[in-house]
Computed example of a mutant assay.
Amino acid sequence: MNRTLVILCGGDSSRMGTKKALLPFEDKTMVEYIYDKFSPFFDKVYLSVNERGDLTHLGLDAQEIPDISRNAGPYGAILSCLTMLSGDRAFFMSVDTPFMDPRIAVYLYDQSYNYDITSFKFSGEFLDTICGVYNKRCIGPLFKSVFFKQTTRSYIEDRCYTNLIDTEEIETLSSISMEQQFFKVNDRSSYYYAVFSILKHNFVC
């Protein structure tokens, strides 16, 4: 298998008012929920954090990687992680997308061997979605984007060998809709929606 996962757990969480990774979700925290869901599909898991030690109390079998710069956003976190990974690439996802199906992560990973970046061809409200496989060959362009404060998806993808897969592929991989898969827990109302959705699903099952 030899796949690597990075869960992006940093950021200021200004709209939420507290760390999203530690929000209660089912009978655990948000990051534990995602870890338990995705780790069976990956050999190695990393947690991207603001400061080393942020999540060590959870006891997850995952190495923490602190951000090089707190002001560079998710691409700064991806840069930090790529410099520390033991392998050549990893699938990156945000801790605030708990409904994502691990099968699409595996699919992207399997399509990523020859590319610097492999992701879906997002548009509209999903343009800022952080979901994809990044290779260590991205380190140079990512460093330049952080240095020149051009941390946008288009700036980075234009400077990397990028494979963007049509989002229609998601429908063939999972019964979970794209809107649900990439639903973001950004604030209290979206968090309550996510918690209710999980409770409703478990009740029906």
Rank of each mutant, 00 (worst) to 15 (best):
S123I: 10
L127P: 05
L127W: 14
D96Y: 01
F122W: 12
F122D: 11
A105T: 07
I130A: 05
K149Q: 09
V185H: 09
F182C: 05
T129N: 04
G140V: 00
S145W: 01
T129W: 02
S175I: 13
F120T: 02
K149H: 06
Q180H: 14
R137I: 12
P141S: 09
K144T: 05
F120I: 06
T162P: 00
S175T: 13
R103T: 10
S154M: 11
I130T: 12
N186W: 06
Y134M: 04
I130G: 01
F99G: 03
N135V: 03
V185R: 08
R137N: 14
D116N: 03
N114C: 08
Y109F: 15
F122I: 10
E169V: 06
K136V: 04
Y134I: 06
V185A: 11
F147I: 14
I139N: 04
R153P: 07
Y134S: 02
D110Q: 09
V185E: 13
T172R: 13
V146P: 00
Y115M: 09
D101C: 00
S119N: 10
T152S: 09
T167S: 02
N186S: 13
V106E: 10
T118R: 08
F120S: 04
L142A: 04
F120P: 02
E179K: 15
Y109T: 13
V133W: 08
T152L: 00
I117Q: 07
R137K: 14
N135T: 04
F122N: 06
P102I: 00
T172W: 10
F147R: 14
